[in-house]
Design a protein around this nucleic acid. Sequence first.
RNA 1: GGAGGGAUGCCUGAGUGGCCGAAAGGAACAGUUUGCUAAACUGUCGUACUGGCAACGGUACCGAGGGUUCGAAUCCCUCUCUCUCCGCCA
Length: 423
Amino acid sequence: MLQVSYIRENREKVLERLSVRNFKQPELVDEIINTDEERRQVQTSLDNLSAIANSAAKQIGDLMRNGKKEEAEVLKGQTATNKDQHKKLSDQLADAEVKLHSLIVQLPNLPHHLVKTGCTPEENETVLVHGDPAVLSENALPHWELAAKYDIIDFELGVKITGAGFPVYKGKGAKLQRALINFFLDRATEQGYKEMQVPLLVNEASGFGTGQLPDKEGQMYHAGVDNLFLIPTAEVPVTNLYRDVILKEEELPIKNTAYTPCFRREAGSYGAHVRGLNRLHQFDKVEVVQVVHPDKSYEVLEEMSSYVQLLLQQLGLHYRVLRLCGGDLGFTSAMTYDMEVWSAAQQRWLEVSSVSNFETYQSNRLKLRFKGSTGKTQLAHTLNGSALALPRIVASILENNQTEKGIKIPEALVHYTGFDYIS
RNA sequence: GGAGGGAUGCCUGAGUGGCCGAAAGGAACAGUUUGCUAAACUGUCGUACUGGCAACGGUACCGAGGGUUCGAAUCCCUCUCUCUCCGCCA
């Protein structure tokens, strides 16, 4: 959520930045400024009226105490006339505030100046490409066929238990999941991230804090009886740990990591692009989250990007890093790097991580602030990234590492799996 | 699921209609004292909106929303959360 005062004072810049996203409703900006203007006028009138009423009430109290009952009664009669006006103004103020809020949550974050204007994923900038595509034999299989061949992931069984998009991992497939989770958590801990274990269901306030609510309810599973939401990512509970918190400057940066299953309803497209592990309703992910000083957030974004790349390198994967263009940028993000791994068998790039700087967009919703050396409180910056999401990593490992002997487990993982081939 | 408590500032906790944005203690911060540590003493010590160049003001907030009243942390209603006990249970 952008700050009203910022919008008010930087109208042109806000419009210019929103255009980078190809934002469809620039008229919202003026509507916000006008509503805010109205709100402030009403508030000033109301404040003045309240000041008069307060001092009158004080006088009445003094008179009563001194036994001057009649004078008090006269004053009472006078103040009563202001009540209607007071009520009217406070209703107006409440309306203006509700309206302002409903407008301002519709504005996405402003892209950083390095973010290029663009509408579609094709316009994303390729920042770097690492490694070379795996060379596979002609009869290389896509991961869903490998999963069946080695009997390590059972999609049909998941359909029986729950539905499409809820796979059952079996034997070495299950062990590989556990190995990856531990591998990712250990690497994150080495980087100074503190491991957290958090609830998988969150309340509405948390959904609002990180920007899933309002409007994106449809993407989350909802436990209606208790009005709780299954988390779509660990970002939600981990970032909300700091909701309504004022940190000390020296506590920054805060670096947390968490493994959680993630739940996404995401009813959408069908076909090869969502086959197998490409898109699931439930999947496992290790997330890294940082809360940092505003001056440091872009430095930290680069650091987080390098860290995710290090993981991909250790797993021996051929990947590229994209800087998302305005149109492909998430609603709450100011700048995002996507990491994509090449799937030789599917002949396409698979997104395995997304690292974003939200600047103050989340912290303004969360009321996540810090008190600086000057004693002033200001909003912190939040960042997060997947490090990493498992399914497409598993898909890539299966597809790129298929050999005649079976699936070769990356060196760095053998310590965690206890086997070096799935055969 | 049943019964009963509770919600006040960073924490503990007082406050049953005006003198309360809120006692007291603790923590924290600054200073004085001090061989060091500790202690003692003094001061500072919530957030937001708003007016002002500033100094300094105004307003709101004692879980949330509504009501009574000239005036509400305090009285009334509704809701939410939380704790304890019983039951069930990994």
